[in-house]
Amino acid sequence: MSKTLAPKPIDQVVKLLEQRFGKLPVAINQTATDANIDCPPEHFRAVVEELKNHRDLAFDFLRNIVGIDMLEEGLACKYQFFSYKNRQAVQVTVLTPPGNPHIPSITDLYPAANWHEREAAEMVGLIFDGHPNLKNLLLDEDVRIHPLLKAHPLQKAEILQGIEDTTPGFTF
């Protein structure tokens, strides 16, 4: 049904992305394993739609979403995409400014994003606009903490910390 294709080298993917996204205010570089697109939140939807729909890109599979607390830089969200058709992988990095952790949800494009976004939302406090059901996933439903923030202490019971006060999402 499907042939075994060799994965595309990173520099080729980078070249391809540069052709496609040269006009948008995005930075294209690479990590140790993947090509990377640094993209501001307002252009994120456009980039993802292009990644999914364009024939040469055709990133049909969402692998993973990582929410990261970058301290004073704000919250970052990394999306790993993969294209079964073209056997290439890309990572999209969205850095949200401090105090405004809103990212458009991509659950309508990638149903697989549903739980990943919920997890990122509860773990670091990102808010995915347009997500159908942004409840806590791994934590208790009524717990309002974001454990993967660097400010969150590793030890001690959460209940004693006095940080159980925020709504889902992130407020400083």
């Binding site: 599979f61 692998r63 079964y84 697989a112």
Partner: peptide, 18 residues
């Protein structure tokens, strides 16, 4: 399977060789 993010044996069971 690809849209839902199925991987591994669940994906291969659909006939997709990956």
């Amino acid at each position: 399977a690809i849209a839902w993010g199925l991987t591994g044996p669940c994906l291969r069971a659909t006939g997709y060789k990956f």
